[in-house]
Design a protein around this nucleic acid. Structure first.
Length: 432
RNA sequence: GGGGAGAUGCCAGAGCGGCCAAUUGGGGCGGACUGUAAAUCCGUUGCUUUAUAGCUUCGAAGGUUCGAAUCCUUCUCUCCCCA
């Protein structure tokens, strides 16, 4: 139990510390401090990558400290250059406010905002930045940080030759000022974030030191990358895995985690599993002795899907996984499925409606899967031809060999076609 | 403000009047193998009624030419150096 109280030690075994300001552990062990993480409202939903930093706040709260989630209502208007190779496009204020509302709502799910002396809080830096004037800011903040200091930051250095506007260059001052403001007015002494945030975090620490000669603390969590170096939390095609079920269905979410590599899954289970160190470690050992069972992946997918969505949604995702991937499910069994079960699948995989008229008119399988379905399955006839001829398409679990074959297909329950593209992509065509 | 360099397909990056739908690498996609893995291997990667074919692409708009990604003009944007 003592271990759980030591927030930093807890993060250490979980592999959640990338960089840390010296003295942070000792300071936090005095107990009862406040820590915050900023969330950028650049989208209307948080994604799986954000969930890692949310776990920092969760672990912080469990260790008895007070977590603060800060919405970047002001900083979102500027755009953080960290980890970016290109200048960002501005979002309109309307979109930002909407995104903030959505993200704020999501955050409530993961932290305890209810009561207790260390209940979580949600703030928005627009609340103090809207009162700030340009002249005031330059005198209060800009004066304390030198250009040399700002230029030395990775986020700036990496962009200096490819182009960075003054606006984005100044970003770190805004985030630094947040920390200063929270330190001064709310007593927040710790800022956390992903490892790409280190530069922004230390600007805050520096500002607090310069302005009021006080020590503030910061730590970063490694930004997870996949074996190929790309950011974790994106599908292979570059789409984010969102926490919003409208953007990424619980099934897709579950599938993403289930498909993690062994190495990746071991790192993730340490981050997301609420259990104590010994339990998690023995789980990993068991997995390593029988990796083909994918035990860690399954548990990981289950606990995270349950946490983000719900136990019911997770159960559904597991059931559909069995239906769609289990090699034992034959065409006959597919036809034996009740319509209710089919509809259950329908809610988890992309569903494409076409009219019965269109369906009757279509003269080849190739057109059915490309133009008739609006390119949702195969984006063009050329692509459809390529993939079908390379044996990449099954309809109702039957391999399609000839792209120009006339569609002479049995509909499931007179309405549905289950299409499988490649190994992992499934679609349900609904003829209405 | 002055001078220089550059903008090519998802990305990096060749091409510098016809043989270029555009070398190559990465990524993506499909297949084999497998654990719905990793590694490896094979195929593919603008579009088109199935194509030793056609059509639309090389920052934007014009122009020269039988013919342009390649030459000229203007514009937009970026980088570098000097002030």
């Amino acid at each position: 139990m003592m271990l759980k109280k030591n927030f930093v030690a807890n993060l250490h075994w979980r592999g959640m510390i990338h960089n840390i300001v010296p003295g942070t552990e000792a300071y936090l062990n005095q107990g009862g401090t406040m820590g915050y993480i900023g969330f950028d409202p650049s989208a209307s939903s948080l994604h799986l990558g954000n969930l890692v930093t949310i776990m920092l706040l969760r672990h912080l709260q469990e260790a008895g400290h007070t977590p603060i989630a800060l919405l970047g209502g002001a900083t979102g208007m500027i755009g953080d250059p960290s980890g970016r190779t290109q200048e960002r496009l501005f979002l309109t204020e309307e979109v930002l406010r909407y995104n903030e509302a959505c993200i704020g709502k999501q955050l409530e799910k993961f932290l305890d905002f209810s009561n207790g002396k260390n209940r979580a809080r949600l703030l928005n830096n627009l609340d103090w930045f809207k009162k700030e004037s340009l002249l005031g800011f330059l005198r209060e903040v800009g004066k304390h940080i030198s250009i040399g200091y700002m230029m030395a930051k990775d986020s700036v250095k990496q962009r200096i030759n490819t182009g960075i506007s003054y606006t984005e260059f100044a970003y770190q001052l805004l985030q630094g000022y947040d920390f200063y403001h929270l330190y001064l007015h709310e007593g927040v002494s710790l800022q956390m974030g992903g490892s790409d945030q280190w530069g922004n975090l230390t600007t805050g620490v520096e500002l607090i030191r310069k302005k009021i000669q006080s020590q503030a603390f910061a730590l970063t969590v490694p930004l997870l990358t996949r074996a190929d170096g790309t950011k974790f939390g994106k599908t292979a095609s570059g789409d984010n895995i969102w926490l919003d079920p409208e953007k990424t269905s619980p099934y897709q979410f579950y599938q993403f985690l289930l498909n993690c590599s062994d190495h990746e899954a071991e790192k993730l289970i340490k981050i997301f599993h609420g259990c104590r160190q010994e339990e998690v470690e023995s789980l990993i050992l068991a997995h390593q002795s029988r990796p083909e069972k994918r035990m860690v992946q399954q548990i990981l997918a289950e606990i995270v899907t349950t946490m983000v969505h719900s136990a019911a949604a997770c159960k559904k995702a597991i059931w559909c996984t069995g239906m769609l991937f289990d090699g034992a499910v034959s065409t006959d069994q597919l036809f034996a499925l009740s319509e209710e079960d089919l509809l259950m699948i329908c809610t988890t995989i992309p569903k494409i409606n076409i009219t019965s008229h269109t369906f009757m008119e279509v003269d080849t399988i190739l057109s059915l899967l490309s133009v008739a379905t609006g390119g949702a399955i195969l984006s063009s006839k050329s692509e459809a031809k390529r993939i079908i001829t390379s044996r990449g398409v099954m309809i109702n679990k039957v391999l399609i060999l000839d792209p120009f074959e006339k569609p002479n297909l049995m509909l499931l329950h007179n309405r549905y076609l289950l299409v499988q593209k490649g190994k992992k992509s499934h679609y349900l065509i609904v003829v209405q």
